[in-house]
């Protein structure tokens, strides 16, 4: 009944060594295991509960009330029954889609360019990329007013070429340009994240198998960066459709989007329930659209990319 038990060298045998677990158990404090945590978190919990959740509940509650405070669905039937407001909703979503597309078209090559740079160059370019987010939106929008205005440097450029400058201010173009300017960082950062995660050996491997540079880009880089595109698009779209200041300054009187009506109903018309309903419609529609978009892209990208 003899058997030879063969055990490899200690190093290979023990899973212990291959996975260097921190191994240090957290000290268990006997009294009130969660009291300290709750105590530390309580101020932040209070901020979120009282200044974030409560106002949002207030908003939803008010949207189902008349101005006198009686329950009603009127705010929603009014919004959805009026073709003017439906058009405002479409226009808002359209601007959101254009901005997202613009960010992708400008942001994707930029992210690819950043990928190949030294950490130092990346650092500086990222700072430039983030700069619009770090300066006041008023200043930013005002700069565009000057740039895109009929006497601005771009119009001057057209005139210098003997051309008539197209109208660039107080229309969709101005809003989309202004929005792409702010939102670009939200697109590029997730893209850089997913580009960085691509194994750098994949491109040489594909080329070794006979793929050209372009095939390589379309078949490897693009599909593998889909998660970044998805994340970036979702953020850019949701933030754009709910932006108020930039469209209000650059869109002028002709481009009136959902947030504008939230603002005017709340501050000029003092119809808070209706303002609440418009805000809530915006949130719901945005949530549904982004969910659909995420599902569509996920279907195309294949499960493994998102696993």
């Amino acid at each position: 009944m003899a058997a030879t038990a063969r055990v490899a060298d200690g190093t290979a045998l023990s899973p212990d060594g291959s996975a260097p677990t921190p191994g240090v158990p957290k000290p268990v404090r006997k009294r009130g295991p969660w009291r300290t945590g709750l105590l530390l978190a309580s101020p932040a919990i209070a901020v979120l509960a009282l200044l974030f959740i409560a106002p949002l509940f207030m908003l939803v509650y008010n949207s189902f009330r008349t101005q006198a405070g009686d329950p009603t669905l009127h705010n929603y039937t009014r919004f959805l029954g009026d073709s003017f407001y439906r058009d405002v909703l479409w226009h808002t979503l359209w601007i959101g889609a254009l901005t997202t597309l613009g960010c992708l078209v400008v942001g994707y090559p930029f992210a690819v360019y950043l990928r190949g740079r030294s950490p130092r160059a990346r650092n500086y370019l990222s700072l430039v990329l983030l700069s619009p987010l770090l300066i006041s939106m008023v200043t930013r929008a005002y700069g565009w007013l000057v740039l895109l205005g009929p006497k601005g440097p771009i119009a001057d450029g057209f005139h210098a070429l003997g051309l008539d400058a197209p109208k660039m201010l107080y229309n969709d173009t101005a809003v989309v340009v202004g929005m792409v300017h702010v939102m670009l960082a939200y697109m590029v950062l997730p893209l850089m994240g997913s580009l960085d995660r691509i194994d750098p050996a994949l491109a040489p491997a594909a080329k070794g198998l006979g793929a050209s540079g372009w095939t390589c880009f379309w078949r490897i880089t693009v599909p593998l960066s889909l998660p970044g595109m998805l994340a970036g698009s979702l953020i850019v779209f949701s933030l754009t459709v709910s932006s108020f200041v930039t469209p209000a300054i650059l869109g002028g009187p002709t481009v009136k989007l959902m947030p504008y009506f939230v603002y005017t109903e709340a501050t000029s018309n003092l119809n808070w329930p209706y303002a609440a309903a418009i805000g809530f419609v915006l949130i719901v529609v945005t949530t549904i659209l982004t969910a659909v978009y995420a599902r569509l892209l996920r279907g195309r990208g294949g499960k493994e990319v998102f696993a």
Binding site: N62, S242, S243, W272, L282
Partner: peptide, 18 residues
């Protein structure tokens, strides 16, 4: 909290403070 539109948060806070 990042994802909630500030305009909606603004109007919510306005009504909540009131």
């Amino acid at each position: 909290a990042f994802a909630v539109p500030t305009i909606v948060l603004g109007i919510g806070l306005l009504q909540w403070y009131a």
